[in-house]
Design a protein around this nucleic acid. Structure first.
Length: 500
RNA sequence: CGGGGCGUGGCGCAGCUUGGUAGCGCGUUUGGUUCGGGACCAAAAGGUCGGAGGUUCAAAUCCUCUCGCCCCGACCA
């Protein structure tokens, strides 16, 4: 039962997004470093929650964390032709190893013989070390993950969604056979799906990128795609089948059980701080961000209410006790006992910041041995706001735990219902153009003749692109058809949308 | 790199067309009354109008140059 959501109009959506991020104090543009952002404590706390959950999933699937250099020798990048072509334009390059003050001005000194590239991704340098670490089939599979920052000198940036520097995790694995590496690619794609669904409460579609959208250097790029509230798609995670491309480029070889020297089969997969932005664009509303309980740095905020000193003493004492109790039950609680800020102002502040549940505690509640709670988003009351609920004082931790579980589920179902309400199956070109006219975007399942030429022509005409070719079970099961643009035969429908 | 727009107290803006000695909202500070959905009253602090040059008795306003930023497109997790 998803509510009709408070969706900002599409043309104002970019502005809404920017404002909401800033007002919730998640992040801000770095100003002094163009294209980069400063992640504020509140935003970083959400990322830490994501990290913790993902890291646990990676460990459970047998991966180990490691760390590789920030700077990559230029020559490394050149070793895989497709790869360098894909990233060359957005590389920051380190050319000097010193400064010297001359007449009060700093000059670059010690030009490097070989410049370094600030890693845009680490396939190359990790390939280099894999070659040293792997000799025998007994060394495989090698399952490594790295938590790191990377830099891509983007022309145009947007907080969390596309920034010059961003934080991510990049998994890199090496296997003895293609069958095995492909299984790894699919396994990690499922890990990302589960994370998105269970933790971010964001439904995703799993698919394969077209050749045109494929990761530079990959044989195949798998992805998860989610719908934002303006109907555009966002790529929320990727898992690449690298084949033997990097194995060959970096000479990563092993001796098989039958004694042959063979190149390894590699994978790489990543998820980034973009997920924080996707969370905002999936659940946020006109009152601010909405954080799913599993990601919320603060689960519950307690706002005490008093009129005079006698009430203040009484209420604060009870509020502190409740906060302590809830913490014992494993919840993260903030007691907002600031003076000189009215309760109403506190409500707005915590709503903007997305805290899932608020407890209001005043003299009346103490007298009746109850507490008043409000969910950040819930079925609306007559005043157009989420209605407040009264909970008994006893066993509050358990009750609120249940509320949080329901809320997490509610957010996922609401997001799923929104996506389904904005997903269409399209056959005619006129209808297709209509879906993407002006600012509009939806998810459109349509037939495509399989050529890059047609894909680009459709993009040119509508700005919609193929987000993915769905893997089994992810798209409408309609079999063969005719390309929406050219009328040529098509084996299956693919997902079209405008995207971030 | 193409197409638009903007630089005025900490933040957001008005004033510019038609030159006349800088104003509003928010925030801040102080005091008081408030406190169950963004409080109110009173007082106060805070700006060489992005920079340089020019026209003029007089420039935030007109002219020239310059610097910086934002938005839209190409590129993209």
């Amino acid at each position: 039962m998803a509510e009709a959501r408070i969706t900002p109009r599409a043309q104002d959506y970019a502005q809404w997004y920017q404002d909401v991020i800033r007002e919730a104090q998640l992040a801000e543009p770095a100003e002094v470093v163009k294209g980069c952002m400063v992640i504020r404590p509140h935003g970083y706390a959400i990322w830490e929650k994501m990290q913790a959950d993902l890291d646990r999933r990676f460990k459970e699937t047998g991966h180990q964390n490691a760390y590789f250099p920030l700077l990559i020798p230029l020559s490394f990048l050149a070793k895989e032709a497709q790869h360098v072509q894909g990233f060359a334009m957005e590389c920051a390059v380190v050319t000097h190893a010193g400064l010297k003050a001359v007449d009060g001005k700093l000059e670059l000194k010690n030009e490097l013989e070989e410049p370094y590239v600030v890693r845009p991704t680490s396939e190359t340098i990790i390939g280099h070390f894999f070659a040293k670490w792997i000799d025998s089939w007994r060394d495989l599979p090698l399952l490594i993950n790295q938590w790191a920052n990377v830099m891509r000198w983007e022309l145009r940036t947007r907080l969390f969604l596309r920034t010059g520097e961003f934080l991510w995790q990049e998994g890199h694995t090496a296997h003895a056979t293609h069958e095995e590496s492909l299984a790894e690619v699919r396994k990690m794609l499922d890990v990302y799906r589960d994370f998105s669904h269970e933790i971010v409460a964001m439904p995703v579609i799993q698919g394969i990128k077209t050749a045109n959208e494929r990761f530079a250097g990959a044989v195949e790029t798998y992805c998860i795609e989610a719908m934002m509230q303006d109907g555009k798609a966002i790529q929320a995670g990727t898992s690449h089948d690298l084949g033997q491309n990097f194995g060959r480029a970096f000479n990563v070889m092993f001796q098989s059980q039958s004694g042959e020297r063979e190149h390894v089969w590699q994978t790489s997969w990543g998820m980034t701080t973009r997920m924080v932005g996707a969370m905002v664009m999936t659940h946020g509303d006109d009152d601010g961000v909405v954080i799913p309980p599993k990601l919320a740095p603060i689960h519950v905020v307690v706002v005490p209410i008093w009129k005079n000193d006698a009430e203040k003493t009484r209420v604060l004492e009870a509020a502190a006790k409740i906060a302590a109790e809830l913490r014992d039950d494993g919840l993260s609680v903030r007691l907002d006992d600031r003076e000189g800020v009215k309760p109403g102002a506190k409500y707005y502040e915590w709503e903007r910041k997305g805290v899932p549940v608020r407890i209001e505690l005043g003299p009346r509640d103490l007298d009746s041995n109850t507490v008043m709670i409000k969910r950040r988003v819930a079925p609306l009351g007559p005043d157009g706001r989420a209605k407040k609920e009264t909970l008994k004082r006893d066993g509050l931790g358990v009750q609120i735990g249940n509320v949080l579980d329901e809320f997490q589920k509610f957010l996922f179902e609401r997001a799923l219902a929104f996506r389904e309400a904005n997903t269409v199956t399209v056959d005619g070109w006129a209808d297709f153009e209509q879906v993407f006219a002006d600012q509009g975007s939806k998810f459109a399942w349509a037939h495509w003749d399989g050529t890059t030429e047609t894909e680009l022509a459709i993009k040119e005409a509508t700005r919609a692109t193929i987000r993915c070719i769905p893997i089994a079970g992810q798209g409408p099961d309609t079999g063969q058809g005719k390309c929406v643009k050219t009328g040529k035969p098509s084996p299956q429908r693919v997902l079209f949308s405008k995207n971030y």
